[in-house]
């Protein structure tokens, strides 16, 4: 039974099936399947789709579809992990969002997808996110990385404000900040004291790996 459930979880991801992912996640909990194994099964699914993408056989709609299916199952399984007093191993926790005043999210969503596929636990706060809200989430989720997206020169300044606010809270050295988005450059990142910058979503994954290397 347990094997069938794990197979089905993986299948739900590679078939982009949110409904099946939710259903099999519930089933896994009911049948007492080890939740860590359930996460592994989902991860295997998403890796397979990720490989297909890298090889140019699958495209963004499939990639995002798979990530969505995984997202549908995760809350149920995470709840069970917590209940059992266990801890899920991830590549790292990343709080992500588009800064205040800015509602561009196409690029940010891609960054979230690529990071999820790479095994990071991504907490996406959405768009138009104020500095205080980022800080709250960083504290709450004990984030390793704070990732900020800004598409306009004007809202680039919100990235600066967020970093300043981290300093004020005294947690700037507890979390690494990476930034990106159309209007951002390496020079700007250096200027505002961000830890890392990359012009692409694929690059964001490399940055995240580097920043979480212990």
């Amino acid at each position: 039974m347990s094997n069938e459930i794990l197979e089905s979880l993986k299948k739900a991801v590679i078939e982009y099936n949110n409904e099946a992912a939710t259903r099999w996640a519930r089933k896994a909990v009911e049948e007492g399947v080890d939740p860590i194994k359930a996460v592994d099964a989902l991860t295997k699914g998403i890796r397979q789709v990720g490989d297909g993408f890298s090889q140019g056989e699958l495209w963004l709609p499939e990639l995002v579809g798979a990530a969505d299916a995984m997202k549908s199952a995760m809350p149920i399984i995470e709840e069970e992990i917590k209940r059992r007093g266990k801890k899920r191993e991830t590549a790292g926790v990343i709080v992500l969002g588009t800064v205040k005043g800015d509602i561009h999210d196409i690029g940010k969503n891609l960054v979230a997808t690529f990071l999820t596929i790479d095994g990071f636990n991504v907490i996406d706060l959405g768009v138009d996110v104020a500095a205080e809200k980022f800080i709250k989430a960083v504290k709450k989720h004990k984030a390793d990385i704070l990732a900020l997206s800004a598409l306009m020169t004007m809202t680039g300044q919100e990235q600066r404000k967020t970093i300043d606010a981290l300093k004020k809270e005294g947690i700037k050295d507890k979390v690494k900040v990476m930034i990106g988005g159309g209007a951002i450059t390496q020079g700007f990142a250096d200027d505002i004291g961000a830890d890392a910058y990359d012009p692409t979503a694929v690059g964001a994954v490399k940055l995240a790996r580097r920043l979480t290397r212990k």
Partner: peptide, 9 residues
């Protein structure tokens, strides 16, 4: 059109 290989517009 968004290019489904990269997400670029």
């Amino acid at each position: 059109p968004a290019d489904m290989r990269t997400g670029m517009i």
